[in-house]
Every structure is written in structure tokens, then in C-alpha cells.
Design a protein around this nucleic acid. Structure first.
Length: 947
RNA sequence: GCCCGAGUGGCGGAAUGGCAGACGCAGCGGACUCAAAAUCCGCCGUUGGCAACAACAUGUGGGUUCGAGUCCCACCUCGGGCACCA
């Protein structure tokens, strides 16, 4: 119990307290649910009520939905959810039809691992956890439309996840328009001869060849992809689960990097559009930059180096790919992978033995070791030379195992002055290093004195030939561009666009996920199941773990839990060519699948005919009128709030799926999330003992000389609130002590929504006292009766009220909840000084508070004599006449320092303000007789005199 | 390592390039009370000064500007992401 909690009997009986809040909150939560207060009508479909939709503007407010963990909500959830709830409630009060609900991203590893340990089916624990979290959300007073809640593990939901997968599987990306199109259209183009298949004339291909050809075009395809295979665990593991010495985090088994047959999604085909359409979005520049960098579009070059005429293999060309063709003047040698096909021809007789033995040694090494940057550089000269296409220099050709045949062309041009690996290689083998930049760190251009490569932007030097001159070129991009032009004109290469983005590895060898709606025929070809076969239900089993293997058996193959269900994996089907035996795909989809489209299902959650009725999608997410700046509106969710940890993956995957659905005509919005806001983290003090182990933060006590746990000193640090740092607080405990309204206000007042902030339990009383004072200004604490000041409010109070209204609206429109609350506290403090709330201010005050503290808001609204919820009451509007003052005080600076102040009429002209400023005694004193050189008057702000 | 972000009183934070520290916590003083709690009123960046006031202050060092917490460059520290945790 906190120090401020009235704990004695002499506290007034009707004071706002945690106990009083409990009663009020429960009562209004019951009523909201019984009356369906927050249900938003749809224009069409099962939840359709076109009349109720009316002519109101709409607003779709969305949270990143939670994983239903057994621990319930953690403090980060109510942080983001309160923000969206306030915004949703405010939006209703300014007349919008608001879609606001909450679902559950319920497939995933924790439920599966819990099932492995306990034998409890994940469906059971998931249902329990969802029920628990629903109760918690209700307790926090969120204004969700409960009819629209979804759960990704519900067959009624994942049926459509599978359906969307099939849409993607049955599509290809037209390279000309970069748009997804139906696979039938590709077949039609092949048949008509308007597009050439990659594997030969369509008419001459066999049915099997045609099938293989189409599979190469599909947006969802099966391919070999490099993964971390851990036979000891029987699963593929994430990079972060692999320790530095190549073993698994769990179990400490060896992990092997190897290729495996996996489902992939061709997200790289959409790379350009995923970059370009960022311009249409109302996201922060930081976030857009993160996505752009992740996609990593860059203009590089493919460059051909002729082998020198007097070398072995003369007449051949060595082709390399480089991201920095502008550095080509500094290329002083080349390095080929030992496996490169030209190595044999390039090797001269006297180097033959050395090359052969180096190639044998390289074969024995794993790729992962060969890329280890810290390793001693090794390599062998082939004896041959190539010609640098820009300056005609003869440069030696080496082989080294740090160049991999699988990456790019298996050969690189080495620019030792600007690349550390090349620099070390050159130093190790005494190769030439030419500076092509004038380093900005003062090291000079004599590379023999350099300790490392110079990496960074700096002016080009030694970078010109008879037709290409990079000297004076300001940016790398321009240097690249000019070099590429030269290469193309002289037949030495061409510009090549590359992306860092890789195709999306989409299958998991696990149990608790969506099964693929795919079967394989006897030849191993994938076939889509027809949509009427959906959902493909996840089969029942009590074996949730994958089969494990001899930990050292690198060539073993994963066997998912579904593989073992023989009765399920094989089936007889008629897919149009008579009944055949098929084998099901036994992978499941990654957890991202369900979260790639859930916002669309909220729009029409009970529709059994279609994943979303087009009329509903058009209404809630369709493009709006062209934006003020003339750009097209892409449609999408009006506000999406969630953690920045999803800045890249989830947001990119969801955008990709949405674009495919758009191209295929299933949705009218180009982008799923129009405005995005990233909330910060809640940090809390965490304590470690002398062994460096975290101790339970709630049991730490502070004394004058530090912090102690069970009598032993501990040290304090701050970190993300959570189980691992043992510093988590349960939001429900705060609801029990102070009430949900106080918790909501505290979370919002801690700081700006996008900043991470440390939790301080002792600070919670600040907003608690605000609610008490607000209550006391309206309600008599002894009698519980309404208590308003009878006389009309004076002009000061009116002005304060209307300034508050204007400010709170402005702050809410911009999601600045912390400062909105500060303004409300300020006005309430003004009322406290008046001795209570004038009757003519009460309605507006209560309405303004209600989005933040909705239970107190409803209760006071009812006690003010209103019938019904204030959910749809209009938000107060400020009177402009009360926002302007008669006079303005100008601070007067002399040389940038405030020396005096003058008060002038608010509408005074600049020369009047200037005269008043110069006439001020203190200003004159500061000027000390000097004549002002210049006077700057900023209207309504200040005056600066330059002397 | 690569990409993104953040550094302001004792603490959380506020501040369209225009009076640094709104609002809250903690602290100090006062009123009320037999007393305490609660409540109400006031003070509250640092240094010097009885004071008026002055000087110094937004991670560090430079720069742009009449004017910089805010814009630019470099550096330091901390947080997030890095593709099978979600």
C-alpha cells in the first residue's frame, strides 16, 4: 500500500481512491460491454449497418497485436494500447466512425516449447492465455469492438492465411510492370508467344517441363536456401541462437550451415516498389531509412577485365561485380575464388604446384570459416595478369579462399586503399596500394605509411584517364554513375542494380503454425489445393517436438512433427486428372504469416465467403482524397502503433503481401499502414549481485549507502522491463492499487510516446493526485454530492479553459499525450485555486479528461446529470476570441541576451514594438550609449538589438 | 561490424531557430491540526551576493546565424534492429 493511499478511517468517505476507482471502473466496463458501446458499423457484410455508418468520416486505429504469453500482458502493452485507445476515443468525439479492436498473434514457439515440456496441447494453453489477456484488456478499459477480435490460430482465420498463400503461389511478378499477376496469364503469354519461357519453346516443352518452368516464376517457390541446421535439436536455428563457436544456444550441439529445400517468397521482385512507395507513407524518416537500408538498393557495376595478352588464358575476360566502380582506378590486383573456372587456364607452369595445393586446402574449409574477417590472409599468385579497363595497368591475378564462388561472380577486383580486407591482403603479399582519395584524417596520400585502409568519403585523386575524370566529383553516387557510363561506352561493363534484401524463407519444420495448402505428386512437384479444401486443419498429435539426430550428422534431414503423422501426410485426391496419391507438405508457415494481413480481417472478421468484403476494405482502408501536397493517398490503416523492433521485418513482409493482394485486385489500398508510430520501451531499474546475476527487483531495498537484496549489496542498472532482468511489474497490480485510469494516465505522462522511459513507482502518485483533485473540484468528498461553483466563470478562467481546449486538441492530433495531460493538470490547478469548478466549465473539462481516464470521465459525466455514455459526445471546441490576449510582453535582447521586457498592445506594429524596446531603461543601460546597428522584431515573440 | 535513434536540474520530462527547465516526483518553508497524515499556499539549475542582480549552464569539441537544446561537421556514451524470439 502506498504512502498516499488513505489508509485511516478519517479519510473522507467519497474521496477518489483506488477502492473507489475499482467500483467505478467495473461498473462502466460492464455497461460498455452490455451496450456494445464501441461497436463500429460496417457498410456491408455480416457486421453491415449502412445507415449507422452514415456520412461520418472513418478512422481505423490499430495496435500491433500481442502474442498471448502465459505471463499475460507486460507493461509495454498497455503503453501502446492506452495511446491508441485515447486516440480512438478522441476520434469518436470529433465525429468519426472508429474501428478499434484487438487480436492475438497466437502461433509461435513459446506455446510449442511449453507443449514439448508438458505434453499440454498448444491449442489449450493458447485458449487459456487468450482468455486471460482478454480479461486484462477489459480491466484496462480499452474501447475495443469485441466482435472484431481475431486469433491467428483459429481455423476460421488461418483458412484465409492459407488462401492468401495460394494467391501468392498462383502468381508471378511481371518484370516489366513489377506487378503480381495470375499464373494463368503467364501461361497465356507463353502460349501466345508474347513471352519466352526460360527453358525453351513452350510448345515443345513436356507437361513436366512446363510445370518446372512455371514454378520458376511463382512468387512462392521451393528452393535450396542456406540455413543453420542443428541435428541435435532436429531444427533449423536462428543466427542469434548460434554461439560464436558454431554451436546451438540450447543444448550446445553443433550447427551446420547448409542448403535445404525450403519455401521461399519472391519479395525481392517487389524491392523497387517497397522502396518507392515509402514516399506515400506518413512514417518517420528514421523508419523509412531503416527500410530503405534493409532493402539496400545500390547501383554497382559488372566489370570485365581482359586477361593480359602475354598471360596464360589471354583472350579470356574475368568478370567481377562491384558496388563501388568509382574506385576502379585503385584496383591494383584481382582475387579469384580457388574454385573459379578460369583458375586452371590462368595458372602458369611455375605456379601450378602452389595453386593446386592451395585449392585442395580451401576445399576442406567451410564457407563460414572462410569469411571470418579476423583470419590471417592467405592466397597464391596464378602467374597471370589482367588489364585495368580504366588505366590499362597490368594487375596480378591471385586466388584466395576469402572469395567465395557462391557470391557474385566468384572474383573480385581488389582496391586495397579503401577496403580493409584487400589492404591486409596487399600488405601480406607486398602488392601495390594506390591512394585514390585524399584522406580527410590527415594521414596523407603516401600509402606506404598507412596502418589501415581509408574508408569514408573524401575527394578523389589519381582518378582520371583521357575520357573519364572523377576529380572534383562530390558524391559517390555520381562517381559510380560516371564510371558506369564510361564502362558501358567502352564495352568494359555496365551498371547493375543490386539489393541487400533476400527472398523470404517461409517454411518452418515445426508444429504450431499454419499447414501449407500444398500436396506433392509422385515426382515431387508441388500442387495447390483448391480453395474449397481450406482450411487445411493442423492435425492432432501429442508429439510436438521434431525428431532429433546424431548431433554430428550434418547430412541428416529435418523431420517435423507433421512428418510422423502417416495417416495425415498421404492422401488420395482428384485435382482434375483423376484420383492420385499425394503427399502433404509437412512444413508450417512462420509466425509472420498470420501478422501479414490481420488488419484486413478486422474489417470483416465473421465473413465466411471472402477474407474481406471489398466494400468494407474500400470504406476502412481505401485511398482517401489526394493529400494536401498533391501526392496520391495510398490508403491503409489511419494509425498503427507498435514497437520499433518491428521496423523492418514485420512491416516489410506485411507490405509485400498487401501489394500482391492489391495487384490481384483483392484490396483497393496500395499500402497497409498509412501512418505508423513507434512507441518506446518501458525501462526499469534492474539489480545484479556480486556474481553479476539479476535479483528480483521488487525485493531490493534502498539505503543511504546503496541498494540491498537480502542484506547483500547489489548494483543498479536500467533495462527493458521484463522477465530476464527480473524487473517486471504486472499492470494488473497497478490497477488493483490505484485503478486503471491512474495507470493509463501515468503511462501517458511519463514522456513522449516514442521515447523509452524508466518506470518509477513513486512517480505514479503524481497523476493519482491529479485525479483526486479533479474529483474534489466536482464532488464533495464528505457527502459524495456534486459540488459546482454557482457563479459564472470569470474571463481569466474562460481564457484558461479555451487555451486548454485548443492545446489538448492540438496535442491529441499529434499523439503528444504527455503534454496534453500537463495542460489538463494546469487547468485543474487553476480550478483548485478558484476553490472548485464553475458550473459552466464542468462539461468541457470532463469531456477533455475522458479519453485519458474514461471511467472517471463517464462517472463524472453521469453525475453532472447526463444520461448515457459520453463516448460519442462532441469534443469541446475552443472559441478563437478567447485565445488572443490584449497585450503581449516582448522580451528584449541586446546581442542575444535578454536585458529587459516591454508590454505593448497585441496588434502593435513592428516600429511601435521597436520604439518601446529602445525606450526601455534596462535596454538603454545595456546599450551603454552605443547606437543599435540593427533591430530585429519577431512578431509576437521577441526583439533583438544588435549593438 | 553494419543500419537507425537518443543524451537538458537530485529524478521523469517541457521548449514552430526566438525568455531553457511547462507539468509531475523528490526536497525545503508556511497554513490547518493537540499531533501526525491528508489538504491548501509558497520556494526549488549551479556559483557569487543581504538584495537588486551578475556570471555560468542542454554529453564533448568545432561551425552556421542578429539569435542554437533545436541546423551542420567530428567525437564520446547509451538504446533498438541485423532476416527461424516476437
Amino acid at each position: 500500500m502506498s504512502a498516499t493511499e488513505p489508509s485511516t478511517a478519517d479519510s473522507p468517505p467519497h474521496r477518489y481512491s483506488g477502492a473507489l476507482a475499482q467500483g467505478i471502473e467495473a461498473r462502466w466496463q460492464d455497461r460498455w460491454e452490455a451496450e456494445g458501446t464501441f461497436e463500429a458499423p460496417n457498410p456491408a457484410g455480416p457486421l453491415g449497418d449502412p445507415e449507422a455508418v452514415g456520412g461520418r468520416p472513418k478512422r481505423f486505429v490499430l495496435d500491433m497485436f500481442p502474442y498471448p504469453s502465459g505471463a499475460g500482458l507486460h507493461m509495454g502493452h498497455p503503453l501502446g494500447f492506452t495511446a491508441t485507445d485515447i486516440y480512438a476515443r478522441y476520434s469518436r468525439m470529433i465525429g468519426h466512425n472508429v474501428l478499434y479492436t484487438m487480436g492475438f498473434d497466437a502461433f509461435g514457439l513459446p506455446a510449442e516449447q511449453y507443449a514439448v515440456q508438458t505434453g499440454q496441447h498448444p491449442a489449450i494453453t493458447t485458449a487459456q492465455n487468450v482468455a486471460n489477456i482478454r480479461a486484462q484488456l477489459r480491466r484496462l478499459g480499452f474501447s475495443h469492438d469485441l466482435r472484431r477480435s481475431i486469433d491467428t490460430t483459429d481455423p476460421g482465420y488461418y483458412r484465409w492465411t492459407q488462401w492468401i498463400f495460394l494467391q501468392i503461389f498462383n502468381s508471378w511478378c511481371d518484370p516489366e510492370t513489377k506487378k503480381a499477376r495470375r499464373i494463368d496469364e503467364l501461361v497465356a503469354e507463353f502460349e501466345a508467344g508474347t513471352r519466352a519461357p526460360r527453358s525453351g519453346e513452350w510448345a515443345t516443352l513436356t507437361a513436366a517441363q512446363r510445370r518446372k518452368e512455371l514454378d520458376q516464376w511463382r512468387l512462392a517457390y521451393v528452393s535450396d536456401a542456406p540455413v543453420n541446421w542443428c541435428p541435435g535439436l532436429g531444427t533449423v536455428v536462428a543466427n542469434e541462437e548460434v554461439t560464436a563457436d558454431g554451436r546451438s544456444d540450447r543444448g550446445n550441439f553443433p550447427v551446420f550451415k547448409r542448403n535445404m529445400r525450403q519455401w521461399m517468397m519472391r519479395i525481392t521482385s517487389f524491392a523497387d516498389r517497397l522502396i518507392d512507395d515509402l514516399d506515400l507513407l506518413d512514417w518517420t524518416d528514421a523508419l523509412k531509412t531503416m527500410q530503405r537500408n534493409w532493402i539496400g538498393r545500390s547501383e554497382g557495376a559488372t566489370v570485365h577485365f581482359d586477361v593480359a595478352a602475354d598471360s596464360a588464358a589471354a583472350g579470356e575476360r574475368i568478370t567481377v561485380f562491384t558496388t563501388r566502380p568509382d574506385t576502379l582506378f585503385g584496383a591494383t590486383f584481382m582475387v579469384l575464388a580457388p574454385e573459379h573456372p578460369l583458375v586452371g587456364q590462368l595458372t602458369t607452369a611455375d605456379q601450378a604446384d602452389a595453386v593446386a595445393s592451395y585449392r585442395r586446402a580451401a576445399e576442406a574449409k567451410k564457407d563460414i570459416d572462410r569469411q571470418d574477417e579476423g583470419r590471417e590472409k592467405t592466397g597464391v599468385f596464378t602467374g597471370s595478369f589482367a588489364i585495368n579497363p580504366l588505366n590499362g595497368a597490368r594487375i596480378p591475378v591471385w586466388i584466395a579462399d576469402y572469395v567465395l564462388m557462391g557470391y557474385g561472380t566468384g572474383a573480385i577486383m581488389a582496391v586495397p586503399c579503401g577496403d580493409q580486407r584487400d589492404f591486409e591482403f596487399a600488405r601480406t603479399f607486398g602488392l601495390e596500394i594506390i591512394a585514390i582519395q585524399d584522406p580527410t584524417d590527415g594521414r596523407g596520400t603516401d600509402t606506404s605509411t598507412w596502418a589501415d585502409a581509408f574508408v569514408g568519403d573524401a575527394p578523389y585523386i589519381n582518378s582520371a584517364n583521357e575520357a573519364l575524370d572523377l576529380h572534383g566529383v562530390a558524391s559517390v553516387a555520381e562517381g559510380v554513375h560516371l564510371t558506369n557510363q564510361y564502362l558501358a561506352e567502352h564495352g568494359h561493363g555496365h551498371a547493375t542494380i543490386t539489393f541487400k534484401l533476400r527472398d523470404w524463407l517461409f517454411s518452418r519444420q515445426r508444429y504450431w503454425g499454419e499447414p501449407f495448402p500444398i500436396v506433392y505428386d509422385g515426382d515431387g512437384n508441388p500442387h495447390a489445393l483448391p480453395s474449397d479444401a481450406l482450411p487445411v486443419l493442423l492435425p492432432e498429435t501429442d508429439q510436438f517436438s521434431p525428431r532429433t539426430f546424431d548431433p554430428d550428422d550434418a547430412m541428416s534431414n529435418p523431420e517435423s512433427p507433421l512428418d510422423r503423422l502417416g495417416h495425415w501426410t498421404t492422401l488420395t485426391l482428384d485435382l482434375g486428372d483423376g484420383p492420385q496419391q499425394y503427399r502433404r507438405d509437412t512444413n508450417v508457415m512462420p509466425q509472420w504469416a498470420g501478422s501479414c494481413w490481420y488488419e484486413l480481417r478486422y474489417l470483416d472478421p465473421t465473413n465466411d465467403d471472402v477474407f474481406v468484403d471489398p466494400a468494407n476494405e474500400q470504406y476502412w482502408m481505401g485511398p482517401q482524397a489526394t493529400k494536401a501536397d498533391g501526392r496520391a493517398h495510398p490508403g491503409g490503416v489511419d494509425l498503427y502503433v507498435g514497437g520499433v523492433e518491428h521496423a523492418v521485418l514485420h512491416l516489410l513482409y506485411a507490405r509485400f503481401w498487401h501489394k500482391v493482394l492489391f495487384d490481384l485486385g483483392h484490396v483497393s489500398s496500395v499500402e497497409p499502414f498509412h501512418k505508423l508510430f513507434n512507441q518506446g520501451y518501458i525501462l526499469a531499474a534492474a539489480y545484479t549481485d556480486e556474481r553479476g546475476m539479476y535479483v528480483e527487483a521488487s525485493q531490493v531495498e534502498q539505503r543511504d549507502d546503496g541498494w540491498f537484496h537480502e542484506g547483500r549489496p547489489v548494483s543498479r542498472e536500467y533495462g527493458k522491463m521484463g522477465k530476464s532482468l527480473k524487473n517486471a511489474l504486472d499492470p494488473m497490480d497497478l490497477c488493483a492499487e490505484y485503478g486503471a485510469d491512474t495507470l493509463r494516465l501515468y503511462l501517458m505522462s511519463m514522456g513522449p510516446l516514442d521515447a523509452s522511459r524508466p518506470w518509477e513507482s513513486k512517480d505514479v502518485v503524481g497523476v493519482y493526485r491529479f485525479l483526486q483533485r479533479l474529483w474534489r473540484n466536482l464532488i464533495d468528498e464528505d457527502s459524495g454530492e456534486l459540488r459546482l461553483l454557482a457563479q459564472p466563470s470569470d474571463v481569466d478562467t474562460q481564457r484558461a479553459l479555451h487555451r486548454t481546449i485548443a492545446a489538448v486538441r492540438e496535442e491529441l492530433d499529434n499523439l503528444r499525450f504527455n503534454t496534453a495531460i500537463a495542460k489538463l493538470i494546469e487547468f485543474n490547478n487553476h480550478l483548485t485555486k478558484l476553490g472548485g469548478c464553475p458550473a459552466d466549465c464542468a462539461d468541457a473539462l470532463v469531456k477533455m479528461v475522458s479519453p485519458f481516464a474514461p471511467h472517471v470521465g463517464e462517472e463524472l459525466w453521469a453525475r453532472l446529470g447526463h444520461v448515457g455514455s459520453l463516448t460519442h459526445e462532441p469534443f469541446p471546441v475552443a472559441d478563437p476570441a478567447l485565445l488572443v490576449a490584449d497585450t503581449v510582453e516582448y522580451p528584449v535582447q541586446v546581442n542575444g541576451k535578454v536585458r529587459g521586457r516591454v508590454v505593448v498592445a497585441a496588434d502593435a506594429a513592428d516600429d511601435v514594438v521597436q520604439a518601446a524596446a529602445l525606450a526601455d531603461d534596462k535596454v538603454q543601460a545595456a546599450l551603454a550609449g552605443q547606437a543599435p546597428k540593427k533591430v530585429i522584431v519577431v512578431r509576437g515573440r521577441m526583439v533583438n538589438i544588435v549593438a
